[in-house]
Design a protein around this nucleic acid. Structure first.
Lengths: 246, 246
DNA sequence: GTAATAGTGTCTATGAGACAATATCGT
DNA sequence: ACGATATTGTCTCATAGACACTATTAC
C-alpha cells in the first residue's frame, strides 16, 4: 500500500477507478472414493458473464456485510455449501484486466476441506444450481467460467503437494475415524496406494490423533476410533510420505 | 466470483461500493550476515494515513498501467527497489474494513528475494525515503503502518518454513556462488548452524546446482563456484533439513 | 611451516518401504 | 473354521547428523 500510486492526481486522492473485488472458494470433499469439487452454475441473466457455465462458488465482497476477506469466504461457504468448514486456507489471489469482461478485477481465493457428511441439499441457499464434480471430469473438454479452471488446478496442486507432508486429509473425515479411513483419504487425494505399516507409525508417532474409548464395529475385527488431538492446527511432518522419484 | 452478491440491486449491477485494491511487496536480502527487509517511509501529506511511519513498499493497483497483480508487484519492485527480483512469490492477501482508515481495502502481498549485490541507491525512484531493517529491530517497540507488521511476520514465517525443504536461499546470492556461501545463506535465514557434510551431500545430490569452470580465490584453499541448474524453479527436498524437536 | 577454508569419509540414528505374521471380530 | 480387516513385527534402505580427517591455497 503506502503512497497513492500513479492514478490521477486529483484533489481527492481516492478518486480513481477501482478494480472489482471478489472472493471465491474451492470446496473439496471426498465422495465415492473420489476427490470432488463443488461448482455453481452461472446465471443466465443479461449482463452476467459466462452464462450457463460452471464456476467456483463466490462473489463480490460486500463492504457493508463483510468484516474481512476470510469472513467473506466463510459467508460464501455457508451460503453455497451450507457448512462451517473444518479447514479453510487462503490459496492466493488472481487479478488483472482481462479475467472478467466487466472490468479490472481481483479475486481472493480460499480453499476448504469438508467431510462428505456435511454435504448439502445440493441447492445453495439462493437456489443457484450447484453440483459436485470429480476432478476427472475436467480433462480438457469442459470449460469453467472466468479463469476458474486455472484456479481450481492451482488448488488441486496445492492440496496434492500438502498431502505429502501434512495432516490435511484428516479434515475430509468426520470427527471420529479409524486409521484405515484416514489412510483411505490420503490415498484418494494422492491417487496412489500407501503402505499400511509405515502409515500407522507415521500417524501414531506424530501425535496427530488420540484414541477415543470407542471402536468401529463391523463384520470383522473392530477398529480403534481416533480423533484429532488438535483440530485447529494441521500437523506438518518432516518427511514426505514417499520419496519422490522425479 | 459468480453472481452479484448482496450489494444494492440497482439496474446497473456493478453500481455498488468497491474496496480499495493494492499490492505490497516484502523484499528480503541478506546483508552483513543478517536477514533484512526493505521499508519505505509514509509521506507526511494531509490525508495520508500513518504519516512518518515505516511501511512495506506498495501502493494502489493502477487499472490503466497494471496488466495483472503480478505485473503490478514487479512494477513496485522496480520503482522502490530498482530490481528485477530473481524470486517472487505470492504470499497472500489481507483485506477488511478496518485495516486502512480510508475505507474497506484489500492488499495482495508478494514476497521477493534478492541478492544484496542488487541493492539500491537507497532512495526509491520517487524519492520516497527507503531503508533496510534487520528483523531484530521489530521486537515489540517499533510499529509499522497499517497491518504491515503482521504481514511482515507472515512473510518471515513463510520464508523460515520453506528454507527447511526448498532451495530458496539460493536466490539471496549472485549467479555464481560457492557451497559455503550457500550454506551461510541457509544459516542466516534459519538462525542456526547446519552441518557442512550433510549440507553438501544434500545440495549436490539434489541437482540444485551445477559447477562452473571457475574457482573462488582467497587467502586459503580455492572453492568451486556453482550456479543454479534451473534458476526458474526452486528445488523441493523430500526431507526437512533438520528433524524438528517440537 | 601456520592459518584458514574447502572438501571427504565414517559411523550412528531415524523413519520410510516392503512384506510377513498375528489378532479379533461376524458368520 | 472362514473371511475380512486391524494391528504388529522384521528387515532393508536412504539420508540426516555428528565428528574427524584430508586437501589446497596465501603467507
Amino acid at each position: 500500500m503506502a503512497k497513492t500510486g500513479k492514478p490521477p492526481a486529483t484533489q481527492d486522492k481516492l478518486d480513481f477507478p477501482r478494480p472489482l473485488t471478489m472472493v471465491d472458494v474451492v470446496i473439496f470433499a471426498v465422495m465415492e472414493s473420489r476427490l470432488q469439487v463443488l461448482l455453481v452454475k452461472r446465471p443466465d441473466a443479461p449482463g452476467e458473464p459466462y452464462p450457463g457455465l460452471w464456476a467456483l462458488p463466490g462473489g463480490f465482497v460486500d463492504v457493508d456485510r463483510d468484516e474481512s476477506l476470510e469472513a467473506c469466504a466463510r459467508r460464501k461457504l455457508r451460503e453455497k455449501a451450507g457448512v462451517e468448514a473444518p479447514y479453510l486456507e487462503q490459496l492466493g489471489s488472481w487479478g488483472g484486466v482481462s479475467r472478467d469482461p466487466r472490468g479490472w478485477s481481483a479475486t481472493h481465493v480460499y480453499f476448504a476441506l469438508i467431510p462428505s457428511e456435511h454435504v448439502m441439499p445440493q441447492k445453495g441457499a439462493n437456489a443457484a444450481e450447484a453440483a459436485w464434480f470429480t476432478l476427472q471430469e475436467f480433462d480438457g473438454r469442459s470449460r469453467l467460467a472466468f479463469d476458474h479452471m486455472e484456479i481450481m488446478q492451482a488448488a488441486v496442486t496445492r492440496l496434492r503437494n500438502k498431502v505429502e507432508y501434512t495432516s490435511l486429509p484428516a479434515y475430509l473425515l468426520p470427527e471420529e475415524f479409524t486409521l484405515s479411513e484416514l489412510q483411505r483419504m490420503y490415498e484418494v487425494v494422492m491417487e496412489r496406494p500407501i503402505e499400511k505399516s509405515a502409515f500407522r507409525t507415521r500417524v501414531l508417532s506424530s501425535g496427530l490423533v488420540e484414541p477415543v474409548r470407542k471402536m468401529r464395529e463391523g463384520p470383522n475385527r473392530p477398529a480403534q476410533l481416533y480423533r484429532l488431538a488438535d483440530p485447529v492446527h494441521p500437523v506438518v511432518f518432516t518427511r514426505t510420505i514417499k520419496t519422490r522419484t522425479d
